[in-house]
């Protein structure tokens, strides 16, 4: 059993009902098959939401801006991240969790770019989940006061539903893909806070209507921030880096607010919870 969350190694553990029946409901029924209805009203993703909340608490405690990067395969996520961490690693701590079905190639590219990285191989899984992120953090030191990039599995469908505890989803679309992807995969574009239109250096060579693409994206999510860049040439990188610096600044503010709230709560307990008595004992 793992220490982080009490999970079994790989299979879900169904606990046998062998403890003393000390709770109120009767275990022996008068007739064998009485049926009844139980109202649950529970979100299907409640378990993932619980793990995501733990991750989010940890990120706030450590002043970490955590971002969930999502896209189709081949949109240039790893190239973008390599270039990004090369620049930012001199300003504040950065680290990367990469998700792919197989291989550690992406993590190796990030490490070569100078940032700590771990790879999660999802095997047949099509998305990262909050539980897997918790375990990845056992192998990767949190970039305290910096930015944690979580590079999700290349897939615009499934990762939309799985909160990892991130501050924001960043969806990356490249101009070599269809401009109508925001309409084809609306859940993802609706869930994202920022869209990066990548590989803009290739615009002269492809038929891609930027204005139409941005219009589609804003139909699905009118609050979406949109930046255009080329990770290859570096054009447009600066607004993205500024977006990250602002986000990191906000994460630090959030950490300070949390620390101040904790401090106020501790002081309040000292005053109202018998602090004076303890002092006389000492």
């Amino acid at each position: 059993m793992c220490a982080t969350c009490g999970c079994g190694e790989t299979e879900p553990v169904i606990h046998p009902h062998d403890h003393a029946p000390d709770h109120a409901h009767p275990h022996q029924h008068d007739h064998a098959h009485d049926t009844r209805r139980i109202s649950l009203e529970q979100d299907i993703l409640a378990k993932n939401a619980g793990f995501a909340a733990s991750n989010r608490r940890l990120f706030v405690e450590q002043g970490v801006l955590a971002l969930n990067l999502v896209s189709s395969p081949g949109s240039g996520k790893t190239a973008l991240l390599s270039r990004t961490v090369q620049i930012l690693r001199d300003e504040f701590p950065v680290a990367v969790i990469g998700g792919d079905q197989q291989t550690a190639n992406d993590a190796e590219r990030i490490i070569a770019a100078g940032a700590p990285a771990v790879q999660i191989n999802t095997g047949k899984g099509c998305h990262l989940d909050a539980h897997g992120i918790g375990h990845a953090l056992e192998r990767l030191a949190l970039p305290k006061g910096g930015v944690l990039f979580i590079e999700n599995v290349g897939n615009l469908v499934c990762p939309a539903d799985f909160d990892l505890g991130e501050a924001a989803k960043v969806v990356i679309l490249s101009v070599t893909e269809g401009e109508d992807k925001p309409l084809k995969y609306p859940n993802m574009f609706a869930a994202a806070k920022l869209m990066l239109l990548n590989k803009t250096d290739l615009l002269p060579h492809v038929e891609f209507d930027v204005d139409r693409c941005l219009d589609y994206a804003r139909r699905v999510n009118r609050e979406l921030d949109i930046l255009q860049l080329s990770a290859r040439t570096g054009e447009g990188m600066e607004p993205w880096l500024e977006w990250l610096r602002r986000g990191r600044h906000d994460a630090l503010i959030q950490q300070i607010n949390q620390l101040e709230a904790d401090l106020a709560a501790a002081r309040s307990r000292l005053i109202h919870g018998g602090g004076a008595i303890r002092r006389t004992v000492i």
């Binding site: 098959h33 049926t35 209805r37 529970q42 299907i44």
Partner: peptide, 16 residues
């Protein structure tokens, strides 16, 4: 702004 239609809930069970 969406107010309903993205739910994914377990509403109820019938058990014995």
């Amino acid at each position: 702004r969406l107010t309903g239609g993205n739910e994914m809930r377990i509403k109820e069970l019938e058990v014995e």
